[in-house]
Amino acid sequence: MLQIKLVRHGLLTLAAAAVVALLVLQSEDVSNFEYIQVAAYVCAAAGLTLLIGVNGQLSLGHAALMAVGAYSAALYLRSGSEDSLASAGDLFVALLVGSVTAAVVGIAVGAVAARLRGPYLAGATLALGACVVGVTTYFDHLLGGDQGLTMPLTEVPAPLSAALTSYQWSALVSLGTALLVLFLLTNLKYSPVGREMAAVRDHEVAAQLCGLSVARVQINTFVVSSAAAGAGGAILGVLYLQIASPGAFTLFLSIYLLAAVVIGGLGSMRGAVIGTVIVLYFGRLIEDRVAHLGLSTAQTDRLAAHLPLAAFGVLLIVVMLAVPGGIQGTLGRIAPRLLQLMETVGGKK
């Protein structure tokens, strides 16, 4: 059964990769630039949905884990010579370094998180999310304080440099990484390890009675989730912003990620992707609308800064009340009925 899933997921990922590649190749630089951000957030949201949806933990501090990924990737890339471009090899190692470092930090955070429940867990992870600025300022000689660490620009590898712009290359790497993360996490979810995670989520005592160590499973999940967030952070820092600075990893980002997985549908990787896209573009859509309302500049600025956040709040409440399964859950419920309806309609003909 698992093998069938593995093969199917593999094929689907490859198909998705083909579509993504086509999309990237025919998109302009500005669109590809935005795909990089989508890819970065998708990685983190996928990790978060594993943590929250599959394992039943909570994190309000995933932006901090993304920061770990971005800063460690920056430190790795800056250890090379300063003025040269980063080669493809460096780039892949940097993404890996970001992911692994975040996973290591995830062990410590996960060990704490496994002891906490409910509001205490929320509080502890919130503190994690809030400490980014403090840590980067305290270690400003290493981490550059508020100014952050700029990174060398990445170089399109020689055989491809004639065919690809640097944004196409960056978008391919980012979206490829995101697909890889989705593939790995989806398989994990359906593997025995994933079932242990779900068992712990559904009933801790029952899971213990089956011989599972609840704490171990929770820490493992946190580590995997952190690794995904770290990869996302590294993409955001290295390929999107080309700088690691605390301003990119605020509490808002953690909340946005949470909103993305809830709106998309808890526990579903597909939902994480849909939720991320909604979260990223919903806010921008509102800002755009506000700009066209014809208000004074001061009012526009104030509204544009606050209205998207307020709208997210409302959207979250509505989703929780009306469609607790999120978009993915709703689709999953509606789709079979639609199919049935279509079949009946088709049959009558």
Partner: peptide
Amino acid sequence: FRRCAASAGAAALAL
């Protein structure tokens, strides 16, 4: 890939 990874495509198309 309608069943499983439609997400990626949907995201990409929406984008």
